[in-house]
Design a protein around this nucleic acid. Structure first.
Length: 243
DNA sequence: CGCCAGGCCGTGT
DNA sequence: ACACGGCATGGC
């Protein structure tokens, strides 16, 4: 929490971004054709493998439900059936309907009108929706609405923990805030346009490395982030603490 | 077969 | 303010 710790971590974060970009290349996120697909994907991927989300998205596309009008027209029961592969389908179907309901009742059914709100107002509005927590809200803000908002997910939380990037990376509100602030600080010197791109790329890269090396049973062998001794020492130390 | 996935929410302390 | 169980399916 001290400025000094943040500064050291931000430097490590920038190096991490470069290492990951080198190892995995540009990720071209979010994997979707349209903003509403981003929104739908953000809901569906909650605690769910992206592979399963893809199956749901494909079923929705085939049914013509993968669009604003499609989402409006489909019944909640039919929507539940289409998104079954990604699990939690009762809640997720209701939540998607609630999103379109908000869009229609307050923003004339326009995602552009929604995006035109200030980031602070918008984030609060999104968080008031059912099944929208910090990560879903921020993913929608960044990837669908193009606001300059970092995204922190479970992978990044583990990475930050193992590399000692933050003082508290607990699974609570303060832990999430710490990860967001760290990312903000890391790219704070970038102009707005570039900052949005960095937030985009960095989150995508943390997912890439997370899928490969930072699952619940971490496999650090071959991870591009453990190239030097300092990192390895850090990981061993922190991993023992976490256990 | 058991564990896990790009979280969130209600309840109990 | 947290910790914790439930939500549900499919991939590995």
């Amino acid at each position: 929490m001290t400025p000094a710790l943040h500064y050291a971590s931000a430097k490590r974060m920038r190096r991490m971004h470069d290492q990951l970009l080198q190892a995995y290349g540009p990720q071209h996120w979010w994997p979707a054709e349209t903003p509403i697909e981003v929104v739908i994907g953000a809901y569906l991927t909650q605690n769910t493998a992206w592979r399963s989300v893809e199956r749901s998205l494909e079923k929705m596309r085939s049914a013509g439900a993968l669009s604003l009008d499609g989402l409006r027209a489909i019944s909640i029961e039919d929507l539940q059936f289409l998104i079954r592969p990604s699990g939690f389908y009762t809640r997720k179907a209701a939540a998607l309907k609630a999103f379109i309901g908000l869009l229609d009742s307050e923003f004339g059914g326009s995602l552009e009108a929604l995006a035109a709100q200030s980031t602070v107002v918008l984030r609060k509005k999104l968080l008031s929706l059912p099944a929208v927590g910090p990560e879903t809200a921020d993913a929608i803000l960044l990837y669908a609405l193009k606001h300059a908002v970092p995204v922190a997910d479970e992978y990044f939380r583990r990475i930050a923990n193992r590399h000692g990037l933050v003082a508290t990376a607990a699974k609570n509100r303060k832990g999430y805030e710490a990860l967001i602030q760290l990312t903000q600080q890391t790219f704070s010197n970038e102009p707005l346009r570039s900052r949005i791109q960095k937030y985009n790329e960095f989150h995508a890269l943390t997912v890439a490395v997370g899928k490969a090396h930072c699952g619940r049973k971490p496999d650090c062998s071959g991870c591009p982030l453990v190239g030097d001794l300092r990192d390895a020492v850090n990981i061993i130390t922190v991993a023992q603490q976490v256990r």
